[in-house]
């Protein structure tokens, strides 16, 4: 196997995106994603069984177009990497079964890797060396996690995570109660455009001194969602107009404020002047603006991979697999299963 610039296929099926990516060392060759998002729209959130069924249908065409985009054949590969967790178990199993079957039929080594660490590892594809240690803030509909990454392939620590809803989920739920469609992120963004982010002071979860003692780097968005609901109900009960733009802007500000405040607090507390963002919620322009402005004020260098690499994708899994191979790690074998709560300390299973 080529260990200096291995050709790696990455398979990602942890949530509602079927992702297949191909990298050669730190060079991105293909990144193809099929999403079942539209099928979940009428339910207001990802339905695990619908996602898993869609992965099975999408896998072959997604793999074929990734191979075509990269201009390589399956037999050219040095290795295969697959997400084994965390994520929705039925969805993960589709990717794992496919990856194992490819590994056996092609007689290639298989690496089972951590999805969250993949979000960090994707940055190697963006050029410039990623410096360590770095703090990583990963925000999507499925996770909200703050990591301390001392070394991508050997030393990742979970500083905190959401204790209830993921940030992306909060956007979906608030969009719903404002009568906006799914997915909520872009809808709230649109509605917030003409709103005043200071119009309503919504609560910042786990930010009071007594919460910070125990949950300094943890997040909570369910109280915020309830506060928005209460605000809307009070206005409707009183027969008043609901100022959607102001509520959307104020809600979005509350989410972003708490995300960035906690991430930068980790940078300061731990003396790490670097912050990396990842996950689908990074698509939110206001989040990127606030992160850029406040990181600059705090003297923290901010890294945001291209948006196509921030959402769940197979390239990030291939990139992490390639890093593991280049640093001499042995493959996972064929016995591993899905682990819906795989800890970030398990970078390679």
């Amino acid at each position: 196997m080529n260990r200096s610039a291995p050709l790696v296929l990455g398979i990602e099926t942890s949530c509602d995106e079927t992702g297949v990516g191909i990298v050669r060392g730190e060079t991105l060759l293909a990144n193809v994603i099929a999403s079942s998002m539209e099928e979940h729209a009428r339910y207001g959130g990802v339905v695990p069984e619908i996602a898993a069924r869609a992965h099975l249908e999408a896998f072959t065409p997604t793999l074929e177009s990734a191979l075509a985009e990269a201009g390589v054949a399956l037999t050219d590969l040095d290795a295969i990497a697959v997400t084994s967790g965390p994520g929705l178990s039925g969805a993960l199993m589709v990717g794992i079964a496919a990856a194992k079957a490819l590994a056996v039929s092609l007689d290639k080594p298989l690496y089972a890797v951590n999805h969250l660490v993949g979000h960090v590892g994707v940055d190697v594809l963006a050029g410039d060396e990623l410096e360590y240690p770095t703090i990583a803030l990963l925000v999507s509909g499925g996770h909200t996690s703050l990591l301390l990454v001392r070394d991508l392939v050997s030393d990742v620590e979970l500083l905190g995570e959401t204790i209830d809803d993921a940030a992306g989920e909060a956007f979906d739920k608030v969009a719903r109660l404002l009568g906006l469609p799914y997915p909520g992120g872009p809808e709230i963004d649109r509605a917030a455009r003409d709103g005043d982010p200071q119009a309503i002071r919504f609560p910042r979860g786990l930010s009071l001194p007594r919460d910070l003692e125990e949950h300094r780097y943890d997040f909570s968005f369910s109280g915020l969602k309830t506060a928005v609901a209460r605000h809307v109900e009070r206005l409707r009960d009183a027969g008043e107009d609901v100022p959607i733009a102001d509520i959307a802007a104020s809600f979005r500000e509350a989410v972003i404020d708490v995300l960035i405040t906690k991430a930068l607090a980790a940078c300061v507390d731990l003396g790490v002047p670097r912050l990396l963002l990842g996950g689908g919620v990074v698509a939110n322009a206001r989040l990127r603006d606030v992160a850029a402005q406040r990181s600059a004020e705090a003297g923290v260098a901010l890294r945001i991979p291209p948006l196509s690499l921030c959402t769940d994708n197979g390239a990030m899994i291939a990139a992490l697999g390639a890093q593991l191979i280049m640093s001499g790690h042995e493959p996972s074998g064929l016995e591993f299963g899905s682990d819906s709560t795989l800890p970030v300390t398990e970078i390679l299973v």
Partner: peptide
């Protein structure tokens, strides 16, 4: 689904 996903991928 596991068996079908495996069969499809093995065949590829």
């Amino acid at each position: 689904r596991v068996g079908i996903a495996a069969a499809n991928a093995f065949a590829l």
